[in-house]
């Protein structure tokens, strides 16, 4: 009897702690990641000041920014839909997010082919450009993988209004990647 109560108590305690822990843990992780990005962003300004080459593909970069913005809102919608129990809409929004994420990665690859020619990584701007965009694109890629996992599990019927933490977590991460782009975009293209 006592043992049963104890087990129950333990699982109840877990039920209470885990949502907070997950959320806090993700925030701490994102804070940590911010430092990683800040290291590279500061490296960009330390090595090459506010200099930037003339032959940056501004139109493409602006387009990529818009793509990320759209994917951000679709991710937001995915979270909103699953939290209110609209599973089909959630799946659709997640798919849209993944597609836009992939478009973004494709755009980066296209941009790199040009950039490799114009300002190769051996130049000082190229160094900052390729490392920062590369780091960011890597995060987009992991975000897409996370979304894919969530989509798959969602399609298997895993999430609902009371059980949406994985979706929320991945979407938060996705927004975080967007957040970094908000800084990287002006840092690389506009300043």
């Amino acid at each position: 009897m006592a043992a049963v109560t104890l087990e129950a108590a333990h699982s109840r305690a877990e039920l209470l702690h885990q949502p907070r822990s997950n959320k806090l843990g993700l925030w701490i992780f994102m804070a940590s990641e911010t430092f990683l990005f800040s290291a590279l962003i500061s490296a960009r300004f330390i090595t090459s000041g506010v200099q930037k080459p003339e032959d940056l593909n501004q139109a493409l970069a602006f387009g990529l920014t818009c793509v990320l913005l759209v994917s951000s809102i679709s991710a937001y919608l995915a979270e909103a839909f699953i939290a209110t129990g609209h599973r089909r809409a959630f799946l659709a929004a997640t798919r849209v997010t993944i597609v836009f994420g992939l478009i973004f990665i494709g755009g980066v690859m296209f941009e790199w082919r040009e950039a490799l020619h114009n300002f190769p990584p051996g130049t000082i701007y190229g160094t900052a450009f390729f490392s920062l965009i590369g780091l960011h694109a890597f995060h987009v890629l992991t975000g897409v993988l996370g979304l894919a996992v969530v989509l798959n599990l969602g399609a298997l019927g895993h999430f609902g209004p009371s059980n949406s933490w994985p979706v929320e977590g991945v979407v938060k991460y996705w927004h975080f990647v967007d957040l970094m782009w908000v800084i990287i975009y002006p840092a690389l293209y506009l300043f």
Partner: peptide, 27 residues
């Protein structure tokens, strides 16, 4: 509720889009 969430999301998105445009124009 969902409706309120959608409204907030849409507003923020529009704001972000406008801000990005202004950013670009300044640059």
């Amino acid at each position: 509720p969902l409706g309120q969430r959608l409204r907030i999301g849409l507003l923020v998105m529009v704001a972000l889009a406008v801000l990005t445009l202004v950013e670009y124009a300044i640059a």
